[in-house]
Amino acid sequence: MSSRHPYRRMIVALLAALVVGGLAATPAAAEPGGDTGDEGASANPTLGSVLEDSTRAWSEAKEKFDASVKRQGELTAQLQATEAQLATVQEQVAAIAVAAYRTGPLTTFAALMDAGTPDSFAERADTINQIAHHNDNLLHELKGLKESQAAQKKALEDEVAAQQQQVQTMEQKKKDAETALKLAGGPSKGFVTANLPSADPVPRTSSGGLPKESCSVKDPTTTGCITPRMLHAMQEAQKDGFKRFVACFRPSGPYEHPKGRACDFSVQTKSGFGGVASGDDFVYGSTLAAYFVKNANQLGVMYVIWFKEIWTPAVGWHHYSGVAGDPSSDHTNHVHLSIL
């Protein structure tokens, strides 16, 4: 048989090469849970770690700063009320002092001795006793108000010091993030779109912070899991009209996908991720990225990547390039969202 078809093996090999080559030349759309290319084998896990640590620390410092500013406002209102009350009591005490100076103890004694009857003497003595009791209470109130005023002033000074400390922490964490991003590129104008909807806020702790969450809920885009906060962000975006293809959990990689804290939002209308976005797809991606930035505090956003740009709460938009230089690595075919 081989003598009748001397080129059979060569033809089969050539056809196989053409088929494989043809498949390789056609970009495959990533399926849910598949690798979109934004975390390739040569990705820098240190960048992701620094961004997570600095952004989380910056966000926590910002929450403490905001809580301190709120507390400062409450203390200021309390101090103003105390000082207004103190001024009134001080006027009353001053009036008592003037009256006591004018009348003196002899006048009080004379008023008692001038009583014509025992009943009148008792009534005058009771009146004098009530006045003395009232004056004594007023002096105690004055003392208490002064102590409250001093304590409230000290509390205000402590809040200002706490705010300064949080500002210093925020500045340091901002520098950490900027240093990590220098390798990717410098600051940029990023993506801003007006009149975007506001997302419903995620649950927070009593102090205003974001509780730690595990990969505990079913990922609707894969067979994996995501955090409740990540699910909330995805559902809010979809509720507000961003309903194109999404892929979240991946079992491997150095960043947030394996932790259930990241999703890739494709900008094309069909399933998958495709090539570099243009036209309506580019507008869709830019609007979605701006939506996540606008609602960063409500959703607990750690960072957003879109079209060679990355945004973090601490430093804003910066240039960003993927390691492989393809549409997925450069995030020119999808918006990446990572959640704290």
Rank of each mutant, 00 (worst) to 15 (best):
L231C: 11
S42T: 15
Q165M: 11
A17K: 05
L51H: 07
P220T: 06
S286C: 10
T107E: 14
S271T: 07
Q149D: 08
E39I: 03
T223Q: 10
Y303K: 12
R102P: 09
L47C: 08
L288T: 01
G224Y: 01
G190V: 05
P254L: 01
M1A: 15
T127A: 14
R8S: 12
M230P: 03
T222Q: 05
L15G: 10
H140I: 10
F65D: 14
G275H: 00
F245N: 01
C225Q: 04
Y303E: 11
N295Q: 08
P6W: 01
P220N: 03
A125K: 06
E74L: 09
E63F: 12
P201D: 03
A43K: 04
S266W: 04
P27I: 06
T82D: 07
E39S: 02
A110W: 08
S328A: 15
I305H: 06
Y303R: 14
E236A: 06
K146F: 02
H140T: 09
A180G: 11
N195Q: 14
G37W: 03
W306E: 07
L196F: 09
A277M: 03
A94C: 11
T179Y: 15
S338Q: 07
I128H: 13
S252G: 12
D240C: 02
K239R: 12
P211E: 07
Q235N: 11
W306V: 07
G48R: 01
E74G: 07
A199W: 00
N297R: 15
L15S: 13
G279Y: 03
G274I: 01
G208M: 02
A151G: 10
E171W: 00
R9Y: 13
K70M: 14
M113R: 09
R229T: 03
A314H: 03
R4F: 11
A41F: 11
G272V: 00
S207T: 13
V283G: 14
R56M: 10
G272E: 04
S188R: 08
R244G: 06
A233M: 04
L51K: 07
A161V: 07
V246D: 02
G260P: 00
C225F: 02
S3K: 15
A162H: 10
E157F: 10
